[in-house]
Computed example of a mutant assay.
Amino acid sequence: MDNKDFEENKDKIENKDKNKFLAKLWDFIKTFAAIFLIVYGLKYFVVDLTAVSGHSMDHTLATGDIMLVDKISKNFGKKYKRGDIVIFNSPTEPWKLYVKRVVGLPGENVEIKDGDVYIDFEKLDEDYLDKGMVTEPTSDIVGWYVGEDQYFLLGDNRVKSNDSRNFGPVSRDYFMGEALMRVYPLDKFKTY
């Protein structure tokens, strides 16, 4: 084998190695991109984790609790029911997410009187509230009509909650999803 043949063989081997490396790199990039798209799709359209911040849902949820949120059902016309815990964009501060409980449903009249919530003139039994917790109006307004595709949302801590008593019923369009379960802390794991 002369020097010329040796150089040609060396170039072929180097090109083959370079091509193998590029093929492996391309496979890695495709795999990473596919995983990224799947995770992105799951997070933004199917389920997400949300951390609780604030005291508006005390004693049900506390600051630092992490919830798994169902985001897909709302895209398929989910009708939320009384007692569901939802995550939504604040109607007054859209950059903030709130966690509240569905209390009033579309087409209902909600009234607050004597420390209780009334739905269509019947007192609502709220067994999820702390014993002794009363619901007071936060302004002169004490009654609301919940329009079509709207919900009346209240925090479980009625003393420290910025909720529908302040900004009225909330359109379903503001909803991010529904709390499925608390996943952290592990000793407080609970489904909703």
Rank of each mutant, 00 (worst) to 15 (best):
131 K>L: 07
63 T>K: 05
131 K>V: 10
148 E>P: 02
37 L>Q: 07
28 F>D: 06
32 F>P: 00
74 K>Q: 09
7 E>C: 02
134 V>M: 12
133 M>I: 02
33 A>P: 01
83 G>K: 06
148 E>L: 03
57 M>G: 01
122 E>I: 08
20 K>C: 00
110 V>R: 06
49 L>S: 10
192 Y>I: 13
92 T>G: 02
182 R>Y: 06
157 N>P: 02
58 D>Q: 08
107 G>D: 11
59 H>W: 10
7 E>P: 00
178 E>N: 02
38 I>L: 15
128 Y>I: 01
146 V>A: 04
107 G>C: 03
116 D>N: 14
112 I>T: 03
113 K>G: 01
10 K>W: 06
176 M>T: 09
66 I>T: 14
92 T>A: 11
83 G>N: 06
144 W>K: 01
159 V>M: 12
42 L>F: 12
103 V>D: 00
51 A>R: 15
95 W>T: 12
118 Y>Q: 11
137 P>E: 08
3 N>T: 14
143 G>A: 15
81 K>L: 10
75 N>Y: 15
123 K>T: 05
166 N>T: 14
60 T>K: 00
86 V>Y: 08
63 T>Y: 10
163 D>G: 01
79 K>F: 00
17 D>F: 07
174 Y>M: 07
42 L>G: 01
61 L>Y: 11
109 N>I: 02
127 D>Y: 05
103 V>L: 11
51 A>W: 10
181 M>K: 14
49 L>W: 04
55 H>R: 09
43 K>Q: 10
177 G>K: 00
70 D>E: 14
166 N>F: 07
173 D>Q: 11
18 K>D: 11
68 L>M: 14
89 N>R: 13
15 N>T: 09
160 K>H: 13
156 D>R: 02
132 G>A: 09
142 V>N: 08
146 V>S: 03
71 K>N: 05
141 I>V: 15
59 H>L: 08
104 G>V: 11
176 M>N: 10
80 Y>V: 03
93 E>H: 15
157 N>W: 00
147 G>V: 04
6 F>R: 12
5 D>A: 14
168 G>L: 08
67 M>H: 04
136 E>Q: 12
10 K>T: 04
22 L>M: 13
